[in-house]
Design a protein around this nucleic acid. Sequence first.
DNA 1: TATTGTTATACTCTATAACTATA
DNA 2: TATAGTTATAGAGTATAACAATA
Lengths: 149, 149
Amino acid sequence: MAAQSQYEELTRQLSAFGVVKRGLARDLPHQCQAGSAAVLALLHRHGEMRLSRLAELLSVDMSVTSRHVAHLTERGWLDREPDPLDKRSRLLRLNAEGENVLRDISDRYVTTLAEALHDWSDEDVGRLTELLARLRDSFGEGRSPRTTP
Amino acid sequence: MAAQSQYEELTRQLSAFGVVKRGLARDLPHQCQAGSAAVLALLHRHGEMRLSRLAELLSVDMSVTSRHVAHLTERGWLDREPDPLDKRSRLLRLNAEGENVLRDISDRYVTTLAEALHDWSDEDVGRLTELLARLRDSFGEGRSPRTTP
DNA sequence: TATTGTTATACTCTATAACTATA
DNA sequence: TATAGTTATAGAGTATAACAATA
């Protein structure tokens, strides 16, 4: 359990995270912003899934996820097929075109990070990644949207 | 210099930061959202300053800063006095009411963090804070808004 | 002419609520 | 009756561009 002043300092750093987020988003293709990119990445990583599952992985409301998915589908980057187990759902899957777009975006992210963090050690990059993952867990375990009414 | 896969993993964690940001913002008073809270915190920490300096500290465009400041001024939480050195500028200063609001917000942030991170060690909280500060520096040193046209 | 700050406009991301179709 | 998903609407945060006042 940390001291109050430690939390206050952490608060300052968390509040200032926007500059990092914008730095990453700046170099994305106009057709695929950060929100949509996250959808592509999750579908690539976890494979075919339903919208509700995707929303859960994104920690975002289904209505938001639905719009991202619609955006990506309109551009022909992912397919929606009927779910044989439940006619209300459709299974979302990245297609070849979507994989290409994702690869492009991933390259852009990596380039931006490699440039910004050129003077970081491997260990520090790893430590930050680990702590961010843990931070997300610590916050994610609280109430999730539309699940604890 | 880290490997590509390390950057990709970091990208995932950075993209998922939204859940943390929303977790912190959820418990703020309706009258003062995160953006305005950041203004209060900076004026408390650095004292009286001009709008342009504030925008620089926030790493955000002056137009954005101007709106936050207008919001806070309307609520009577900060004062704008003529800058004796430049009639185009005004000096912004937190007043007593603003200090109270900031104290309230700071308490809320600390409470939220203490709850979410109750099982974190002091050392890990410190490490995360440090790495986030460094991350911000690494991104902040790039182009800043309205300075590199 | 250049700079400080303001305002109008537009875009992204998000949530809530009302709705349809299916379970 | 409850759940999966969609859509309409609203609000926070941000940037760009046009503008006023002053340097």
